[in-house]
Computed example of a mutant assay.
Amino acid sequence: MNEASGAGRTPPDTGAPLRVLVADDFEPVRTLAVRMLEKLGNHVVGEAADGQEAVEALEREPHDLLLLDLSMPRMSGHDVVRWVNARPEIRDRLTIVVISASALDERPALAELGVTRVLPKPFRLQQIADVVDGLPGR
């Protein structure tokens, strides 16, 4: 779980922009992640302030990467992961990376749910770059 392998995921087209959804209820974290992704290159980045917004965004359009907080209102990150897992058409092309200040102890359980990696908060630009570089087709 230390690598963003995306094993089992359908690789995105290498020339296409990476489609990322950042789901975190703390606005400064979302803003920081969006800015980091914009610095890294050609990415289409969406934001969700809670788990329910994340699910709605994932239903509306396909994404390649979900940066997901676990502790959010209306629907937790755990519930979002379970929702994704119940939808193979979404799960098979989506890499899920948890961003959390407290989830490091949960890594084995999260890996069983299909989470590729856990980034501790606060995260650094290089950590986000490593996740993006580790995606299939990148």
Rank of each mutant, 00 (worst) to 15 (best):
S100C: 11
R87E: 06
D13N: 13
G6D: 04
D133S: 14
V84T: 10
R91E: 06
L40H: 02
S5Q: 08
V97G: 06
G134D: 04
N2C: 01
M75L: 15
M72Q: 10
V20E: 10
V97C: 02
D24A: 06
S5A: 13
S71G: 03
M72D: 08
M72A: 06
A111D: 09
E38L: 07
L37Y: 02
D64E: 10
R124V: 12
D133Q: 14
N85M: 12
L58G: 04
E59G: 03
A16N: 03
T14C: 01
A129V: 03
M75V: 05
I96V: 15
L58Y: 01
R19L: 06
R91W: 00
W83L: 08
L104P: 00
V22T: 10
F123A: 07
L40K: 03
T116W: 00
V22L: 05
V45Y: 00
W83K: 08
P120V: 08
Q126R: 15
I128N: 04
E89Q: 12
R60N: 01
V34R: 15
A54Y: 03
G8E: 02
L135H: 06
D92K: 02
P17M: 02
A54M: 10
I99E: 01
F26A: 14
L32Y: 10
P62H: 02
R19V: 11
D25K: 10
V55L: 09
R60Q: 13
V20P: 09
W83A: 05
G51H: 05
R93K: 15
L67R: 05
A23T: 06
V115D: 06
R35V: 08
M75Y: 05
L135P: 12
R74I: 09
E59S: 12
T31P: 00
D79C: 01
A101H: 03
R124P: 00
V84W: 00
S71A: 13
L110V: 11
L66S: 03
R35C: 09
A23W: 05
I99M: 15
I96T: 15
P122G: 11
P12G: 13
H43V: 10
V44R: 10
D24F: 08
G77E: 09
T14D: 10
P108C: 09
P12W: 01
K39C: 05
N85S: 15
V84F: 02
I90M: 10
L104D: 13
T95Q: 05
P88S: 12
V115P: 05
A103P: 07
D50V: 05
A86S: 14
V45F: 00
E112W: 00
T14G: 05
G137N: 08
F26Q: 07
S76I: 03
K39D: 14
E59H: 02
E112V: 11
A54G: 07
G114N: 04
R91N: 12
E56Q: 11
V81I: 15
R30N: 08
R35H: 12
V34H: 02
A49S: 13
R124T: 14
P28L: 07
A109I: 02
R91P: 03
G51S: 01
D105L: 13
R93E: 08
M75Q: 14
T14A: 15
